[in-house]
Design a protein around this nucleic acid. Structure first.
Length: 255
DNA sequence: ATGGCTACGATCCGTAGA
């Protein structure tokens, strides 16, 4: 089976592109982030025609996540507090033989800001939510935009960006608290030495110069990680007219 | 040297992303 995660940076601004990519790839499970739209504006029909069940948690202007699967979704949960939060950043459901979490971690703006503190707190609460599931041996795929590059190999200029947003020590520690619950970084496992990115700023010709960050991840619990066949970043999706600033990450698991 | 682009929602600029 194939699982994909894709920060689309507005579903309405590029619905043709995103639906077209999905039609071409047909991942069994697809996690979308940054819908920047309310659920009523999500292209439900287009995905239904491709055979997807959808759990969408949108909001006006910002954030917004969708968990799509070609199998039914069960036990859908929105957010860390049962959907009472202001920011729609998490949707969890059971599908196939997995529990899947679609994650959109806060950006965090810059170390020392209020948003940075919110980011760290949000990640801490995500760790608290995942901990009992991991402890119970639940087969998990936690997929999304974590807005953290885990190591210096995951960013284009680690020295120039030292302690900046996405690479700072507190962010890496917050991500490690999640990963160290017992997850495998699927892309890194399948590409141990490679340097590759999933996000490039629109500015400064960052994509053309390959100035990027690997901040989108698919984390798997051990039994699921044993089934890994491949993990690939689809750089082609970052090219052409009006792309998202992120590229999709796609993993293939043995049945 | 943090500016540069893009999307949104309210105007024709401010907020946010990362």
């Amino acid at each position: 089976m194939r699982i994909a995660t894709y920060n689309v940076n507005s579903i309405r601004a590029r619905v043709e592109r995103i639906v077209g990519w999905t039609r071409a790839q047909l991942p069994d499970v697809l996690c979308l982030q940054e819908l920047k739209a309310e659920e009523k504006d999500f292209p439900h029909d287009a995905f239904r025609e491709l055979g997807y069940h959808a759990a969408v948690w949108g909001q006006k202007t910002y954030n917004g996540v969708a968990l799509l699967s070609r199998a039914p979704l069960a036990d859908v949960q929105r957010g860390l507090d049962g959907g009472t939060e202001e920011q729609s950043r998490l949707v969890v459901a059971r599908t196939y033989d997995l529990t899947v979490a679609c994650v959109y971690a806060p950006n965090g703006e810059a170390p020392g800001t209020e948003k940075f503190a919110y980011k760290l707190g949000w990640m801490e609460r995500l760790a608290d939510k995942l901990a009992p599931l991991v402890a119970a041996g639940t087969p998990l795929a936690v997929c999304g935009d974590f807005n953290v590059a885990p190591t210096d190999v995951d960013v284009y200029d680690p020295d120039g960006l030292r302690e900046m947003i996405h690479v700072s020590t507190p962010e890496r520690e917050a991500l490690a608290r999640i990963v160290d619950l017992g997850f495998t970084d699927s892309w890194r496992k399948m590409n141990p030495k490679e340097r590759a990115y999933t996000f490039w700023d629109y500015r400064m010709l960052a994509f053309q110069k390959n100035r990027g960050y690997r901040i989108d991840h698919i984390y798997l619990t051990p039994k699921v990680a044993e089934r890994l066949v491949s993990a690939k970043i689809d750089r082609e999706a970052r090219k052409g007219e009006r792309p998202s600033d992120h590229a999709p990450l796609v993993v293939e698991l043995k049945a």
